[in-house]
Design a protein around this nucleic acid. Structure first.
Length: 187
DNA sequence: TAGGCCATCTGGTCCT
DNA sequence: AGGACCAGATGGCCTA
């Protein structure tokens, strides 16, 4: 199921936050994803879930004088606008990234996850290429080669550039090519 | 029609 | 205190 080459959709921003909140179910959020577990955000999410479970969805300005209520609604609208702008900036950054990653899906737009995955492996393949080219230098001579290689080894040891179970550097280009191919096939 | 992807809203938390 | 960041929820669009 590919959803590429779709014209950018533009939602009509809700003008009434309370009405928008009414569309939501009162049920709490689903269990935390593996992503947030990986990022160590579990405790934070659990606290948020607890807060929502106690009082349910808090509706902005649901209580208090009308003036405070209007203030609250206004702040919520401004907050929504800022969040939209933030997401637009994020999407612009994704688009900029798409444009610098070589890939073979010129006819279809890369999804965000595809963009990130390809970018990661592209960086790895470039790194391995640089290492390969610089490894031909004579030992003892000053130059970027040995230092670069040392840095790469340190990253690998720390689980950074290569990761514990990653193949050797020369495997990255092959992996990147394979991934491009799989994306082209639409898998 | 189901499922993937996305935009938007929302409230909690973090940061300056 | 206010803005930024984050993640859950929701609904729309699109494709297989």
């Amino acid at each position: 199921m590919k959803t590429k080459n779709r014209p950018p959709r533009r939602r009509v921003p809700a003008q009434d936050p309370e009405a928008a909140a009414g569309e939501r179910t009162p049920d709490g959020p689903q269990q935390g994803s593996g992503l947030e577990l990986a990022k160590g955000l579990r405790s934070r999410t659990v606290r948020a879930q607890g807060a929502r479970a106690e009082g349910g969805r808090r509706r902005p300005g649901a209580s208090g004088p009308g003036g405070r209520r209007e203030n609250s609604v206004q702040r919520r609208l401004e907050s929504n606008e800022r969040e939209r702008q933030r997401m637009h900036k994020l999407n612009n950054a994704f688009q900029a990234l798409r444009e610098v990653i070589p890939h073979v899906r010129a006819d279809k737009k890369l999804s965000k996850i595809e963009t990130l995955t390809l970018a990661k492996n592209y960086i790895k393949s470039l790194t391995s290429t640089i290492l390969t080219m610089s490894s031909g230098r004579l030992p003892g001579l000053d130059g970027p080669g040995p230092k670069l290689y040392q840095h790469y080894q340190q990253q690998a040891a720390a689980g950074g550039a290569l990761g514990a179970t990653e193949p050797q550097p020369e495997g990255h280009l092959q992996r990147y090519s394979t991934q491009i191919h799989s994306f082209r096939e639409g898998s």
